[in-house]
């Protein structure tokens, strides 16, 4: 490992922390190609194995970069309990990696089907009602107690709506933060995708209002991503397969104005580009952050 790579942990930068989602295709690059990143984010469940190459790799990366653990499968809004094995695995990983952030989603992911609890392998939308609020509050309290730290909860891109919501998404998220002390991970592309799929005419105004409706002090991370275009009448899919769209960069500037220098992550999960292209996206985010929030903000 070259000295130049020891940027994230040993030479923390001023201003907004910028990171990238680290996926398998870039495992070699992150350790061999110096990149001006403040942190990297991995999907927790991909490193649940007790040993082996993946675990050893992550521990090596953690020596040089702060690591954010982003979970995708806790299913905090599920009617069935978090599987017994999950929290010990996550706790052990967190103890090993000492992550800078830990997050998951406002979603459900499992339910009973044909007599078994089945895992959807996806992030499914929850109804924004009191019953789900109590359920999620209890689950978040449990997770935060086990981990001994604050959890960040991410807003979803949802492709259908379950009936029965009693409050808006932002009211639900705000209540979660107030009841549990958890933070929010605001995914701007998810907001963009939802607005597009709902046929919102003025997407920028819709997202701005959404961002203004959540408590600024609760926001602990921003996610930026791009997604593939779709034909008219089709739903846009948050596939994380493209560069961040111009509209989302605009929203990012607004989000920084509202929330200040919160850690920001570029997510790219499919049709992965070269490492240099990915890190260039991170540099673009840094440039915008520096323009919006000059040092000393």
């Amino acid at each position: 490992m070259s000295e130049a790579l020891k940027v994230g942990k040993e030479k923390p930068r001023k201003g907004t922390a910028i990171g990238v989602g680290l996926r398998h295709a870039h495992f070699r690059d992150v350790l061999t190609a110096p990149a001006p990143l403040d942190f990297v984010e991995v999907h927790s469940e991909n490193f649940f194995g007790k040993g082996g190459a993946a675990r050893a790799f992550l521990l090596e990366v953690a020596q040089y970069y702060p690591v954010s653990l982003h979970s995708t499968a806790m299913g905090l809004g599920s009617e069935s309990a978090i599987p017994d094995s999950y929290m010990p695995e996550l706790k052990r990983l967190a103890e090993d990696v000492e992550p800078c952030l830990i997050s998951d989603h406002v979603a459900f992911s499992r339910a009973e089907w044909l007599g078994h609890i089945v895992h959807s392998g996806d992030l499914l939308p929850v109804v924004f009602d009191r019953e789900n609020l109590f359920r999620m509050v209890a689950n978040i309290d449990h997770v935060q107690k086990v981990l001994g730290r604050r959890l960040l909860l991410e807003n979803l891109s949802a492709y259908l709506t379950l009936p029965g919501s009693e409050m808006s998404e932002t009211e639900f998220l705000t209540a979660l933060t107030q009841e549990t002390g958890c933070g929010l991970l605001v995914d701007l592309n998810n907001l963009y995708v939802n607005a597009k799929n709902q046929g919102v005419e003025n997407v920028e105004r819709y997202v701005r209002r959404w961002l203004e409706s959540i408590p600024a002090e609760a926001v602990g991370e921003l996610h930026l991503a791009g997604c593939s275009p779709v034909a008219a009448g089709e739903l846009m899919i948050d596939d994380h397969a493209r560069p961040v769209a111009d509209e989302v960069w605009w929203l990012y500037a607004f989000a920084l104005e509202r929330f200040g220098p919160v850690p920001t992550l570029i997510e790219w999960d499919n049709d992965l580009p070269d490492w240099q292209v990915l890190t260039a996206e991170a540099e673009k985010a840094r440039k915008i952050a520096e323009e919006v929030l000059p040092y000393g903000h």
Binding site: S78, E79, F108, R110, A111, E112, W113, V118, S120, D122, L124, V127, A158, Y159, L160, T161, L162, P163, G164, E234, L235, I237
Partner: peptide, 28 residues
Amino acid sequence: DTEQQRLIRSIFSHDNPGNFDPRGLAIY
């Protein structure tokens, strides 16, 4: 079934007992 059970069933099987938006269901 609860709404969550209906959605899981709709994703894993060819049924759509919850009358979910077919476009969204197709994505899941």
